[in-house]
Each structure stands twice: as structure tokens, then as C-alpha cells.
């Protein structure tokens, strides 16, 4: 089975976000970048599927050269090779176009990615890619098993989950608990250095959205503390002051 895993290169979840250039660019100074946590789940499940029944795992990232350490990490946990589309990923339609283009050149049985990136949180690339390729897309996927050419999935819905079945090929947006995150070992890190990482130029330039400006939320006021012995007062305050009851 051939699996393509699309990963994002995003600020660590603990990052304090700020902007530069008159609020038009992310301030990357001191920011540690990681593989998107949801993408990490997708990658881990892909490696598990490969270990269980063979095949290959190719990692794909749309990003500038700065993302290569993140790609190498994916190779270190067990992906076989990688492709980097050399472009800044600023628009979901543009990114999906790149992924669909790579997928058309190589036939994959399974295209996995996170349910959303944790920078722009749109969660639309898997659906766009599925539609562009004319194959099913499912998200958010919490469980994925392959039996022959059939995928058996569990998708989270509000208040529960649904069990799905579909023939491959398939695009899936993944989330926990689909797999345990994998940590690269020393051998993995050593072999990752020599695994193929192909850099390709993007197809087309069309973007459907442009961010004109970023903004930080207004700072939160001080927390009003209520002594535990007067806890009941909270309910009165929520009713009369905050007006939420």
C-alpha cells in the first residue's frame, strides 16, 4: 500500500503568538516549530499500517526550506521518502492544489493528514484534495483500519462517533486517538539524513484568500476572586454582573 502523509510546520502549541511588519507577518523570533500535532497522529498511523502490512509512506510538505528539519523528523520516525513543494503555504486552495498535483503523478491508496493545521485551523485541505481528486474524504477520523482494499473508520461527531466503511483510495483528516505519537530513535535520526527528500516547484499560483492584517485578542481583565467560604456569591455575580445565567 502506498500512503501519502501531508504534514504542516507550525509554531509549537505553547507559543505566545505575536506579529511584526505592522501586524502583517508572524513574529518567528524565538518560536519553535513542530509538526502539526494532528499531522503527527496521521503520520504515526501511516507508519503503523506500513509496519503491519508493508508498503511505503511518503511525506509531503508545502513550505519553504525552513521546514526541512520538520520533514527530516518525519523521515526519522519511519517515512520512506519526502517531497517538499517549495512555496509558502498561505492559502488552503493553493496548498490543496499542490497536494492534488503530487497525488495525480503518483497513485496513492491513502492520503492522510491532520484534521486541521494548528496555525490557521481551517480544516479544509483534506476535503479540497478529495474533491480535486474525485475520491472520498473523511474527517475527523479517530480510528482507521485497512482490510484488503476497504478502509474501516471511526469519525467523531457531536456527542459520539460513527463507524464508516469505504473502498480505497481515500483522503482522511486524522485526530487522536488514531495512533500514539512516535518518537524518533537514534537509528531513525541517522537513516533520515540519507533518505530522499525531493524539492519540487509549485503548480500554479492561484490563491483564493489573502490575509490583510493580523490582530491579537484584547487583553483579559483581572480575575475576580471569590473566597471559597462565600462560593455561592459566584452564582449571584454570574447572574447580575456577568449576566450569563
Amino acid at each position: 500500500m502506498k500512503i501519502l502523509v501531508c504534514i504542516t510546520h507550525v509554531p509549537d502549541t505553547t507559543t505566545k503568538i505575536s506579529f511584526t511588519d505592522n501586524n502583517t507577518k508572524l513574529n518567528k523570533a524565538g518560536v519553535q516549530f513542530i509538526t502539526g500535532p494532528y499531522d503527527d497522529y496521521a503520520l504515526s498511523r501511516a507508519i503503523e499500517l506500513k509496519e503491519a502490512s508493508g508498503g511505503t509512506v511518503t511525506v509531503l510538505n508545502v513550505g519553504l526550506a525552513e521546514t526541512e528539519p520538520t520533514i527530516r523528523k518525519a523521515l526519522a520516525v519511519g517515512a520512506d521518502d519526502a517531497i517538499r513543494v517549495n512555496a509558502e503555504p498561505t492559502d488552503a486552495f493553493f496548498v490543496a492544489t499542490q497536494i492534488a498535483s503530487i497525488a495525480k503523478q503518483n497513485t496513492y491508496d491513502l492520503i492522510l493528514m491532520g484534521r486541521e493545521s494548528i496555525d490557521f485551523n481551517s480544516g479544509q485541505v483534506h476535503g479540497l484534495v478529495g474533491e480535486m481528486l474525485g475520491i472520498p474524504s473523511v474527517s475527523p477520523v479517530m480510528k482507521l483500519d485497512i482490510e484488503g482494499t476497504t478502509a474501516k473508520l471511526s469519525r467523531e461527531i457531536e456527542g459520539g462517533k460513527e463507524q464508516l466503511e469505504v473502498s480505497l483510495p481515500l483522503v482522511a483528516g486524522c485526530q487522536e486517538p488514531i495512533a500514539e505519537w512516535k518518537i524518533p530513535n537514534m537509528r531513525g535520526i541517522m537513516t533520515a539524513r540519507t533518505k530522499p527528500l525531493k524539492v519540487v516547484e509549485p503548480t500554479g499560483k492561484e490563491e483564493l484568500t489573502t490575509v490583510t492584517k493580523y490582530e491579537l485578542p484584547a487583553p483579559k481583565g483581572a480575575c475576580k476572586m471569590i473566597p471559597a467560604e462565600e462560593a455561592e456569591k459566584l452564582i449571584t455575580l454570574l447572574r447580575t454582573e456577568a449576566k450569563v445565567l
Binding site: F93, G123, G127, L128, S139, R155
Partner: peptide, 23 residues
């Protein structure tokens, strides 16, 4: 935004070539 809405909106965006602003 919902578990179903997000997944549907993404495919719809590609079908009608729409820009999608989420959240």
C-alpha cells in the same frame, strides 16, 4: 462550524471554487 459542516464545506469549496473562511 461542526464535525459535519467543516468536512462538507471543504468539499463544497472545491466544487464551486469558493474561498472559505473558517472560524
Amino acid at each position: 462550524k461542526s464535525s459535519l459542516g467543516d468536512a462538507v464545506a471543504a468539499r463544497l469549496a472545491a466544487k464551486i471554487k469558493a474561498s472559505l473562511a473558517s472560524n
